[in-house]
């Protein structure tokens, strides 16, 4: 008996992991530190450095090795069982959730984690430490003559009526490559049908795909791109503060709120030190440093959740759904059909 199962044929990187691409690696702490442990993270180092520096300043005996990689690479590194990292930090909530669900995380309990809000903690294993609105970024120069998009439908109308402005000048995450982008797109697909129409219109405009928020922001900033859809809010705010051309737009129909999460892997050789750092990261002091010096909004910052029609992405097992092989293949096929024309 032969069963025909449709397989997404375009890009198939779901198979066996082929090793992690380390984007950057930096050591924090004194040379003579006795103990050291490793953080495997997808968060840009500039945003995360202040809180690590504050920790090693208070604990001169501890050094931290910070390894930056993409959320997908982080997932396969831990899932394959190769990684020997002590703390895993990623913005791809779904991948983090799947790693924890599949038993890759250690349990960690402390007075600090007991004080976390329910939505920021799962099974005493996965901890949210920063919230991020997912935003639209537009170039001020291009939008000088255009209205600011109020909703996705409005944005759609603006693109349709100004093809000369937007042709080949729209950007968004390549969800085939970026775990975070995949999460944003799937949550968009859950929220509304407008997402698919928007995707098709963006596809018809020759939208450029990118691996990361940083690249998208740089292109908009330079004026090369007119708008970037689904950009991590904190990165966008940080750029907008420095550069005049970037404008951050919270679309009113809904704004997905991302939770950056961390967990201690079961295979961690230095779980105690990682726990100490996690405690610091989740403590009020750590959160203040993270927000004021790093620019990552604290989970205790209520202004994020008060954004019009904020839709916080729930830290729950629903996240596993789009990571199902068949569901993921279906989604990517649809998405590629819409955007890559």
């Amino acid at each position: 008996m032969r069963i025909t199962v449709v397989i997404a044929a375009l890009i198939c990187w779901w198979g066996p992991a082929t090793g992690m691409t380390i984007e950057l690696e930096r050591r924090f702490g004194a040379e003579q530190a006795i103990e050291d442990f490793t953080i495997l993270s997808s968060t840009d180092i500039e945003l995360f450095a202040p809180v690590i520096e504050a920790f090693v300043a208070a604990r001169p005996d501890v050094a931290i090795q910070y390894v930056l990689a993409s959320s997908r690479d982080i997932y396969s590194e831990i899932d394959s069982g190769r990684g020997r990292h002590d703390l895993v930090i990623s913005s791809a909530m779904d991948l983090q959730m799947k790693l924890v669900n599949d038993g890759h995380a250690d349990r960690f309990e402390s007075p600090v984690t007991a004080g976390l809000p329910d939505w920021a903690i799962w099974r005493d294993q996965l901890f949210g430490f920063a919230v991020e609105p997912i935003v639209l970024v537009v170039s001020r120069r291009d939008f000088a003559a255009l209205p600011t998009p109020a909703s996705r439908r409005h944005f759609l109308d603006i693109i349709r009526s100004n093809p000369e402005v937007f042709r080949n000048r729209l950007m968004t995450y390549d969800v085939n490559l970026s775990g975070t982008g995949f999460l944003f797109a799937t949550q968009d697909a859950r929220q509304s049908d407008t997402f698919w129409r928007l995707s098709e219109v963006m596809g018809s405009m020759g939208t450029r795909l990118s691996c990361c928020s940083g690249e998208m922001l740089a292109r908009v900033e330079s004026g090369e791109m007119a708008a970037a859809y689904n950009v991590v809010g904190s990165y966008a705010q940080a750029r907008a503060a420095k550069h005049g051309n970037i404008k951050v737009v919270h679309l009113e129909d809904y704004t997905n709120i991302l939770l950056r999460t961390a967990f201690i892997p079961r295979r961690s050789p230095k779980s105690r030190q990682a726990g100490e750092f996690l405690d610091f990261l989740l403590s009020r002091r750590g959160q203040v440093i993270l927000e004021t010096q790093g620019g990552l909004p604290s989970i205790f910052n209520s202004s994020i959740v008060e954004i019009t029609n904020a839709k916080p992405i729930g830290l729950n097992t629903g996240l596993l759904v789009y990571l199902d092989r068949l569901k993921r293949e279906n989604f990517l096929r649809e998405w590629n059909a819409a955007l890559v024309q």
């Binding site: 069963i3 025909t4 199962v5 449709v6 859950r190 729930g314 729950n316 097992t317 629903g318 596993l320 759904v321 789009y322 199902d324 068949l326 569901k327 279906n330």
Partner: peptide, 15 residues
């Protein structure tokens, strides 16, 4: 071809 659509909300409720 067979298509599956795992229900997001069901999985949310389960956990």
């Amino acid at each position: 071809a067979l298509f599956f659509d795992l229900p997001y909300d069901t999985f949310t409720i389960l956990g």
